[in-house]
Simulated scan of single mutants.
Amino acid sequence: MLELSILGFLSEEPLHGYELKERIKALSGHVRPVSDGALYPAITRLVTAGLLDQHTEPGSSAAPRRILSLTGQGRETLLERLRHPKDVEITDQVRFNTLLAFLRHLPDRHEQAAVLRRRLDFLDTPTSFFYRDERPVRAEETADLFRQGMLRVARATGEAERAWLAEAITQLES
């Protein structure tokens, strides 16, 4: 998701590394922090692959700043990743939120709706944090106060997300 975040933010405007790191941190850093040891090697890989351009500008102090921008190939890669996200990018909430943050860059509304439909289909599949006899356990079926809390919050969140997804899909397909 780090590479998707890099491509997504740079599709909006050229940025220097620190600005890019701050935007990624704001998007998912509270859940999955981004370190310089992960960010800068990812940037180097994307530059080497021809997905990013970089040039140096004078900094606000004495140090020059490396400015990054998306290439045409980088934009095509971003669009392809948005059109065809991996299953884990649909099933993992943080990864899906990262996908949502940039889905507006996909120009075809029906393709946007198809991604949302995949998430809705996933959410409609019965699941739980806990199972008994290979069957998902519901909040009402456990006496553990804390597991009840987990399950109730997950159910409420899931209901709200399913309602939004249904509305968004209808709007995109109309």
Rank of each mutant, 00 (worst) to 15 (best):
R65M: 15
H30T: 09
G17A: 15
Y40H: 11
L52R: 08
Q54T: 13
R23M: 13
R32Q: 07
T56N: 07
P33V: 05
L39T: 02
L79Q: 13
I24L: 15
H30A: 14
L15P: 03
S35N: 04
L27Y: 08
G37W: 00
T91P: 01
R32A: 05
V34R: 00
P58D: 15
L82Y: 03
H16G: 00
L15G: 01
R83L: 12
Y18N: 14
S69P: 06
S61T: 14
R75D: 04
L78G: 01
R65H: 12
H55M: 04
A38F: 00
P33A: 12
V47C: 02
G72P: 02
S60C: 07
I24P: 09
K21N: 08
L78F: 09
P41D: 02
G29N: 04
E80F: 15
S35R: 08
H55P: 00
E76L: 12
R66C: 12
Y18G: 08
V47G: 00
P85V: 11
L15M: 15
V31R: 03
A26G: 13
R83T: 12
L20R: 08
V34A: 01
R23W: 12
L99P: 01
L68P: 06
I43E: 02
G29M: 05
G37I: 00
S69Y: 01
L46K: 03
R66N: 13
T56F: 10
L39A: 04
D92G: 01
G37M: 01
T77K: 15
D36V: 11
T71Q: 03
V34L: 03
T98W: 00
N97C: 13
